[in-house]
Amino acid sequence: MEVRTIKVFTTVDNINLHTQVVDMSMTYGQQFGPTYLDGADVTKIKPHNSHEGKTFYVLPNDDTLRVEAFEYYHTTDPSFLGRYMSALNHTKKWKYPQVNGLTSIKWADNNCYLATALLTLQQIELKFNPPALQDAYYRARAGEAANFCALILAYCNKTVGELGDVRETMSYLFQHANLDSCKRVLNVVCKTCGQQQTTLKGVEAVMYMGTLSYEQFKKGVQIPCTCGKQATKYLVQQESPFVMMSAPPAQYELKHGTFTCASEYTGNYQCGHYKHITSKETLYCIDGALLTKSSEYKGPITDVFYKENSYTTTIK
């Protein structure tokens, strides 16, 4: 009895394709271990004539594949690729409408935090270190965002349907971005203890939790000093293409032309909904596939993004 075979390709990165001759009487799992086709788990399936010449994702289970996976995804987590594939199996079914010149995501599976993050990423200057993220990001900007969303979920250790947080998501993504040249110098002034300067680099240099107003941050924000008295913390120097200011959701007025974009969060910790506000020729609110415009805006804002380049204080 002759062994019926077909020729397929296996890959971990969709760049390096490895030619395989597979036995049609055995499952993919018996031949390769966990195997995925377009995100779908085909591990328990036997090869079919229609699979001839198709590319299958496999887990990096030998040295060659491990090197290829690390170079593309910059992670050695053995569960990463499987999590990416199972997320992709959902995100490829989502709709990605162009809204006001940006790629958004039609609401499904509690994905409003991903839509808000995706919209924000198209408006701030950011370059990702893992080629996987950078490639998928370019495709997302062009309207094909399924891979990018699935990668975000995998890097953030999230599953489809789980509630997510924009600030946490951005923080994970910033860790995989090139923020080497970003720098922030802060000064804390206390009447009792004097003053202390701190220099922050990388992710810490672009994120701040405690106030939404970048102007206020430049002037000074009140913080408790270690001595128990009130101290003032203010920005001395900022070198970065953008800054992200966050605070627990509270009524906040966004003035046209003073910011790049913002995240609105309605609801409580267990259950809520994100919308995205962007400042173009007027203010726009993007909620999944829905767009509304207004000249002014007041609502429960939790993150505001500002364009920056270089700032030095005039406070002496």
Rank of each mutant, 00 (worst) to 15 (best):
73 Y>P: 07
70 F>G: 13
119 L>G: 01
8 V>P: 08
233 K>Y: 09
64 T>E: 12
152 I>S: 01
75 T>L: 09
243 V>K: 04
269 Y>D: 15
307 K>M: 12
3 V>D: 14
117 A>P: 00
207 M>R: 01
184 R>L: 02
116 T>M: 04
248 P>M: 08
206 V>Y: 02
170 M>R: 01
94 W>S: 07
52 E>K: 13
192 T>H: 09
233 K>V: 14
73 Y>R: 05
257 G>Y: 02
300 P>F: 12
297 Y>C: 00
245 M>C: 12
19 T>K: 15
253 E>W: 00
138 Y>S: 14
161 G>E: 00
205 A>M: 03
90 H>E: 07
24 M>P: 14
96 Y>E: 01
132 A>H: 01
40 A>C: 15
173 L>E: 03
61 N>Q: 09
227 C>Q: 02
246 S>Q: 04
120 T>K: 04
52 E>C: 12
316 K>Y: 15
212 L>F: 02
34 P>Y: 08
102 L>A: 05
160 V>I: 10
113 Y>S: 02
25 S>W: 13
30 Q>R: 15
272 G>T: 02
76 T>R: 12
37 L>T: 09
219 K>F: 04
197 Q>L: 09
79 S>Q: 11
120 T>P: 00
226 T>C: 10
225 C>M: 02
270 Q>L: 10
290 L>S: 13
101 G>V: 02
191 K>A: 13
83 R>K: 11
126 L>N: 07
96 Y>C: 07
132 A>F: 05
44 K>A: 09
237 Q>V: 10
174 F>V: 04
180 D>S: 11
284 Y>M: 10
283 L>W: 00
168 E>G: 03
223 I>L: 10
79 S>K: 14
250 A>G: 08
233 K>F: 08
232 T>K: 07
44 K>N: 12
80 F>M: 02
242 F>S: 01
163 L>R: 14
153 L>W: 04
144 E>W: 07
95 K>L: 12
105 I>H: 03
163 L>P: 10
71 E>F: 07
9 F>H: 06
104 S>P: 04
54 K>R: 14
61 N>L: 12
191 K>C: 10
260 T>M: 15
314 T>N: 15
202 G>Y: 02
224 P>E: 14
60 P>Y: 07
95 K>I: 15
56 F>M: 12
9 F>W: 12
284 Y>L: 12
41 D>M: 10
45 I>P: 06
93 K>N: 13
269 Y>H: 12
188 V>T: 15
43 T>G: 13
60 P>E: 12
293 K>N: 08
31 Q>R: 13
171 S>C: 14
194 G>I: 00
54 K>A: 13
215 E>K: 08
315 I>S: 15
304 V>D: 00
173 L>K: 04
182 C>R: 08
219 K>D: 08
286 I>D: 06
22 V>G: 09
195 Q>Y: 10
154 A>Y: 02
161 G>M: 07
186 L>V: 15
39 G>C: 14
120 T>S: 12
207 M>I: 04
262 A>P: 04
166 V>E: 05
62 D>M: 08
201 K>S: 12
204 E>G: 06
185 V>T: 11
30 Q>L: 14
151 L>N: 04
152 I>F: 03
264 E>H: 01
73 Y>C: 04
289 A>I: 10
7 K>S: 13
17 L>T: 00
293 K>E: 14
257 G>V: 03
207 M>K: 06
295 S>R: 12
86 S>Y: 10
212 L>I: 01
100 N>Y: 10
81 L>K: 04
82 G>S: 13
294 S>Y: 15
19 T>C: 06
156 C>Q: 04
122 Q>P: 05
184 R>K: 01
161 G>P: 02
11 T>H: 00
205 A>I: 01
223 I>E: 13
173 L>W: 03
82 G>V: 15
153 L>A: 01
168 E>H: 05
4 R>S: 13
234 Y>T: 09
248 P>Q: 08
231 A>R: 03
245 M>P: 00
196 Q>F: 12
280 K>H: 02
262 A>H: 05
282 T>E: 11
91 T>F: 06
144 E>L: 08
26 M>V: 12
171 S>I: 11
22 V>H: 08
86 S>R: 13
13 D>S: 09
106 K>T: 13
73 Y>D: 07
233 K>C: 15
162 E>W: 05
171 S>Y: 15
205 A>Y: 00
134 Q>E: 09
305 F>H: 00
24 M>T: 13
60 P>A: 13
95 K>W: 11
269 Y>K: 08
20 Q>L: 10
107 W>D: 00
22 V>E: 09
277 I>A: 00
61 N>S: 14
310 S>Q: 13
162 E>S: 10
118 L>P: 07
202 G>F: 03
159 T>G: 11
164 G>L: 02
63 D>L: 07
71 E>V: 08
201 K>T: 14
167 R>Y: 09
165 D>W: 08
89 N>Q: 05
306 Y>E: 00
33 G>P: 08
270 Q>R: 11
167 R>N: 05
7 K>V: 12
30 Q>W: 11
47 P>Y: 07
244 M>Q: 02
218 K>I: 03
233 K>S: 13
207 M>D: 05
274 Y>P: 01
6 I>F: 14
290 L>F: 13
191 K>G: 11
5 T>Q: 10
269 Y>I: 11
200 L>K: 11
217 F>T: 05
32 F>S: 07
27 T>A: 14
82 G>K: 15
90 H>S: 11
304 V>Y: 03
280 K>Y: 08
69 A>R: 02
246 S>P: 02
184 R>F: 07
227 C>N: 03
44 K>T: 13
170 M>D: 06
130 P>S: 05
161 G>W: 07
276 H>K: 02
180 D>L: 03
301 I>R: 03
313 T>N: 15
59 L>N: 14
46 K>W: 11
229 K>P: 07
175 Q>M: 11
10 T>F: 07
5 T>P: 12
78 P>V: 09
256 H>L: 15
268 N>F: 00
269 Y>R: 14
56 F>C: 09
113 Y>V: 02
251 Q>L: 10
46 K>N: 12
151 L>E: 06
276 H>E: 01
176 H>G: 04
236 V>D: 05
24 M>D: 14
99 V>F: 15
76 T>Y: 11
134 Q>L: 07
122 Q>L: 04
112 C>R: 06
184 R>N: 00
192 T>Q: 14
35 T>Q: 08
278 T>P: 03
244 M>K: 00
129 N>P: 04
189 V>I: 13
9 F>Q: 14
307 K>C: 13
120 T>M: 04
193 C>D: 01
255 K>E: 08
296 E>D: 15
79 S>C: 14
149 C>W: 03
28 Y>T: 05
56 F>H: 03
262 A>F: 00
7 K>P: 11
295 S>W: 13
251 Q>W: 10
86 S>I: 12
